[in-house]
């Protein structure tokens, strides 16, 4: 007769936490911060197709670090949830809070019930009608949820970056300054001499002023123009907001029809 090995719940949780933490720390970091015009996402990500940052809904964005297959799964589920909710009620009824809650419950369930927890950390960002209603939710592998007032740093050398960001962050930054702040913090991990160029960055914003779908990726020439040391010509925003230059919506006034 074989007896199952007994492990105390405490030890079990500790081991799972350790596994998740290690997995998350291995990757590169993501910084999400509030700026004057909305919410800014900056990730260190050399891939142009495997995104760490994504659009979820009109006013909701998603950023994640850790194991790609696992957060991709959560991203997909979030988009499905938002679209089903928006379809069965109204587009205005889709909120970041509900999504963050669902993620927290799902991650919590996976953490306690499954052999291996998800090695991910997620940030759900939502842009409100005014800066006061912008929200950042940080979700960790065990289903903990934190409402962050200013910024979220996840993955890699998160602590070093948080320290750097804490010193330089101020509220109400303009986009150009916010990007500079985020990049300076991101490149300060460990050896502080690293320089992050357009090729290593994935940048996106939730822009309060955009109608309908607020999510906009900033890449290529538009990003180069906004990077520190590119001069103050300031036409980058304009060129990036034309449809086709990014993945976000231009008009889409179907919503007005059913609003």
């Amino acid at each position: 007769m074989t007896m199952p090995f007994y492990t105390s719940p405490e030890q079990l949780m500790r081991e799972r936490s350790e596994l998740a933490r290690k997995g998350i720390a291995r990757g590169r970091s993501v910084v999400v911060l509030k700026y004057a015009g909305g919410v800014l996402f900056v990730a260190e990500n050399p891939s142009t197709t495997l995104h760490k940052i994504s659009e979820i809904y009109d006013r909701i964005g998603f950023a994640a670090v850790g194991r790609y297959s696992e957060f991709e799964n959560l991203r997909m589920a979030g988009i499905r949830m938002a679209d089903v909710k928006g379809y069965s009620y109204d587009r205005r009824d889709v909120t970041g809070r509900a999504l963050a809650n669902a993620y927290a419950q799902t991650l919590g369930a996976i953490f306690t019930e499954q052999v291996k927890p998800f090695e991910v950390e997620i940030c759900v960002g939502e842009v409100g009608s005014t800066a006061e209603f912008d929200q950042l939710y940080r979700l960790t592998y065990d289903g903990s949820i934190v409402d962050e007032p200013q910024y979220v740093v996840m993955g890699g050398q998160a602590e070093t970056i948080t320290t750097a960001l804490k010193q330089s962050f101020t509220e109400g930054l303009e986009l150009r300054d916010a990007i500079a702040t985020a990049i300076r913090a991101l490149s300060s991990d460990g050896e502080s001499s690293r320089e992050l160029g357009v090729g290593q960055l994935e940048v996106a914003v939730l822009e309060r002023s955009r109608p309908h779908r607020t999510f906009r990726r900033i890449s290529g020439a538009a990003l180069r123009e906004l990077l520190p040391g590119s001069g103050e010509s300031g036409s980058g925003e304009q060129s990036a907001s034309a449809p086709g230059g990014d993945e976000s919506g231009a008009g889409g006034d179907v919503a007005q029809g059913d609003r």
């Binding site: 949830m81 993620y103 799902t106 919590g108």
Partner: peptide, 27 residues
């Protein structure tokens, strides 16, 4: 094993169907 068990978290957690990889079609 199920990806999550909504029984324990009624009305909140994402149902298993949402986490199942599949079609990109909303319909």
């Amino acid at each position: 094993m199920e990806p999550s068990s909504p029984r324990n978290f009624p009305g909140q957690a994402l149902p298993p169907a949402y986490l199942t990889p599949g079609s990109s079609s909303f319909t």
